[in-house]
């Protein structure tokens, strides 16, 4: 048997076992819904699937998803850039580290609901989710990257200095490969948090064309299958966005040689 057939067999086995696990939980959910026997309290997976399928054919669904996606991407972008810049600053300046550590730790510990309510006072309804997502993401990126930068091997930094490597070469060859695993971890965590906090902010701020608004409507009219279907849509979107961004970053890493071709950075 060749290595590739063994690998594809293993892959099939893995997919099979994942499907089995999914089927188990869906069956359990179906059973629970059957026992409760009240759609308002617990919709069945079949009802949720049918509702979601119905939503997919609706233009408004896509407009709503696009609205939420844009807000979340904007907040994520601000958080990623801001967190990265702050990490570079605090890693290189002890005073900046002392000054910024305290507020960043406070932001990290503050409940997202507090931010949402404060932001409602300060900002337009469309900006509230962007603001909250950015505030959630920023400390995650900052703390992960700061930790990553501390791990950069000083001997490699010295080697780069001794051989007078230009700044961008040094960045690409020495700094990025060592920081990248931390950035990837931060990105993965951040995307999940972005959706959670972004949708929560939308439910309270109720901007037009937002998943949060739809969830709120579903709750008011006690349309439980719709509530579940929108939630399922958010989960799927979050997973898809995470996979897409991580894959893009890895591809860029291999292209620009700061990740090892065919594998993770070490």
């Amino acid at each position: 048997m060749t290595a590739s057939t063994t690998r594809s067999k293993e892959r099939l086995k893995e997919i099979g076992s994942k499907l089995l696990v999914l089927a188990f939980w869906l069956a359990l959910w179906q059973l629970a819904a059957f026992l409760v026997n009240q759609e308002i309290l617990l919709a069945t997976p079949v009802q949720v699937g049918t509702t979601l399928w119905g939503l997919l054919g609706d233009v408004d669904f896509w407009l709503t998803v696009a609205g939420s996606l844009l807000r979340i991407l904007a907040g994520l972008g601000i958080g990623l850039v801001g967190g990265t810049l702050l990490a570079v600053l605090t890693a290189n300046c002890r005073l900046a580290d002392r000054v910024f550590s305290l507020p960043l730790e406070i932001i990290k510990a503050t409940p997202v609901a507090s931010f949402i309510i404060l932001a409602l006072v300060w900002l337009s309804t469309d900006s509230v989710p962007v603001f909250c997502v950015a505030l959630m993401v920023l400390p995650i990126v900052w703390s992960n990257l700061s930790q990553g930068m501390k791990q950069i091997d000083p001997r490699l930094k010295e080697m780069a200095f001794a051989y007078r490597l230009p700044f961008f070469k040094r960045l690409r060859a020495v700094y990025l490969p060592q920081v990248m695993p931390y950035f990837l971890a931060a990105l993965q965590t951040s995307i999940g948090f972005s959706w959670k906090s972004g949708i929560a902010a939308e439910v309270i701020a109720l901007p037009k064309h937002s998943v949060g608004n739809m969830l709120y409507q579903a709750k008011i009219y006690l349309e439980t299958p719709e509530l579940f279907a929108w939630t399922a849509a958010v989960i799927l979107l979050s997973i898809l966005l995470e996979r897409l961004l991580v894959a893009l970053l890895k591809k860029a890493g291999r292209k620009f040689r700061f990740l090892r071709a065919g594998g993770e950075a070490r």
Binding site: E158, M159, A173, P177, A265
Partner: peptide, 25 residues
């Protein structure tokens, strides 16, 4: 003057191939 240093430890970049490690400088 340029100064090349051959350190006591190898100090290679693990994500680059042998050729890329040498070409780096």
């Amino acid at each position: 003057k340029t100064v090349g240093v051959l350190f006591q430890e190898d100090r290679l970049l693990e994500h680059l191939t042998v050729k890329q490690n040498i070409a780096l400088v």
